[in-house]
Amino acid sequence: MFITNYIKEVWGAVKSLAKGMKLTGYYFTHHKEIITQEYPDNRAELVLPERFRGEVVMKHDEHNEHACTGCTACELACPNGTIKIITKFDISPEGKKKKALDTFIYHLELCTMCNMCIEACPTDAIKMAQNFEHSVYDRRQLTKKLNRPGSKIREGVE
């Protein structure tokens, strides 16, 4: 029937509009839902979401050891050449040569925080940190070396 469909349509429209207004009305009256952070006023107690990506860092444990094998999977995964890995050869006590990480170079100024290097890493050696205050006066300072001086690969990570 044309007329019943017509009335149904009008009723459905009114109902869906009322649904939307109910939600915005709820937000209007419940100010605890506000998600705006008043940075930098709250810089001391700033809480960022868990998945916020600020920069790539390498995880080091208390013995100054990391899990990077120098496999360059992150370098290959990076879409804009942000990561450059320089490898060296460690000589094990048995006299065997083994490929290892020498320098992990990270160009923060090129990074788009796409997270692909972290997904590509087979040993979970790098992660995204939440620091986002990166401004410096000289762009050369944005080229970072991620493995700490004197650090070496953790025992047992292949």
Binding site: G25, Y27, F28, H31, I34, I35, E38
Partner: peptide
């Protein structure tokens, strides 16, 4: 103000 509060802003 109304716009901000309805969009969960300040």
């Amino acid at each position: 103000r109304v716009a901000a509060w309805m969009q969960i802003r300040l």
